[in-house]
């Protein structure tokens, strides 16, 4: 059985068996959960379908969050992307639009997959639904690549954290972004080592990001951080696929993220006590939603 102790261990195991990380993970999880691999794959495919659907439901006309603080960001970005001429290019514009939409869907009490959390639920769909719809990568390869994302996520959860309340936004959106980058690399035909490098780059590029939601709600700045997390994931995937290596081994990067999270002030860990939440406007918005407290 796999221990998910280090990323390096997973990469080495995959190399020994000459398999993808997702393949050794699927095999292992089937054993651990005492289920058929095909059955687990089917469940993952269903989760992927929820991601595809959440992109659509999040950009419905007039949809807004329960608090009224956010809504329509995904639709605006999708319309902008459709008009053409985005600075980032069509693919990136559409990918970030999807991330915003899924995040909008979440804030409006729609159905999403927490990957790894609800607050960061737009990043995997932003990347993977884009590969599926805009790059016509085989659905089976994409669904399989989510096992790589999940395997890496287990390592992060065991050695650092995937919760904003424990490690700040770097732990939520940073982890999601790294997991998504690794999945993209695998789906694009990269090696297990490239997957690990992409994970590390995405984490490094979000290290230190604080969790400072206005009014404590998963909206400001969470919705937009899903867009930037997607952009960082895709950028990291491309760097890894280009053969750029990670100077600090990925497991050490995860350790560093944990150390940074530990040294972060509690006011910056989902308590709505610092950062954007503590700005004048942040506090006014809080009053608008919950009244004076």
């Amino acid at each position: 059985m796999l221990t998910y102790d280090t990323i390096r261990g997973l990469v080495e195991q995959a190399a020994r068996e000459n398999k993808k990380i997702s393949e050794i993970c699927l095999q292992d999880q089937a054993q651990q959960l005492e289920r058929e691999p095909e059955d687990l794959f089917r469940q993952m495919d269903e989760s992927f379908q929820v991601m595809v659907d959440s992109v659509q439901s999040g950009k419905k006309e007039g949809l807004h969050s329960t608090s009224g603080l956010t809504g329509g960001e995904g639709k605006k970005m999708a319309d902008y992307a459709d008009r053409g001429g985005s600075v980032m290019g069509d693919f990136m514009a559409r990918a970030t639009a999807r991330a915003l939409s899924v995040s909008n869907c979440n804030a409006a009490m729609g159905k999403i997959v927490a990957t790894p959390t609800a607050g960061s639920c737009g990043i995997l769909p932003g990347c993977l639904v884009s590969l599926y719809e805009d790059r016509t990568i085989d659905r089976r390869d994409i669904v399989l690549s989510i096992f790589t994302a999940g395997a890496f996520g287990i390592v992060i959860a065991q050695h650092a954290s995937i919760a904003g309340a424990q490690g700040g936004c770097q732990a939520e959106c940073g982890s999601a972004s790294g997991m998504a980058a690794a999945a993209v690399v695998e789906a694009m035909g990269g090696t297990p080592q490239m997957c690990a490098n992409a994970l590390g780059m995405a984490i490094v590029n979000q290290m230190g990001l604080v969790c400072d939601p206005v009014a404590g709600l998963v909206e400001i700045p969470c919705v937009k951080r899903n867009a930037s997390g997607t952009a960082i994931a895709l950028c990291s995937a491309d760097m890894a696929l280009a053969g750029i290596d990670l100077k600090i081994p990925v497991d050490e990067c995860i350790g560093a993220m944990k150390a940074v999270g530990d040294s972060m002030s509690p006011s910056l860990k989902e308590t709505a006590g610092g950062g954007l939440a503590a700005t004048e406007t942040g506090r006014l918005l809080r009053e608008k939603v919950f009244g004076k407290q």
Binding site: V50, C105, N106, M109, G110, K111, T115, A118, L124
Partner: peptide, 8 residues
């Protein structure tokens, strides 16, 4: 990690 499927 990849889940739960849930209402936000």
């Amino acid at each position: 990690i990849i889940g739960p499927v849930m209402i936000g």
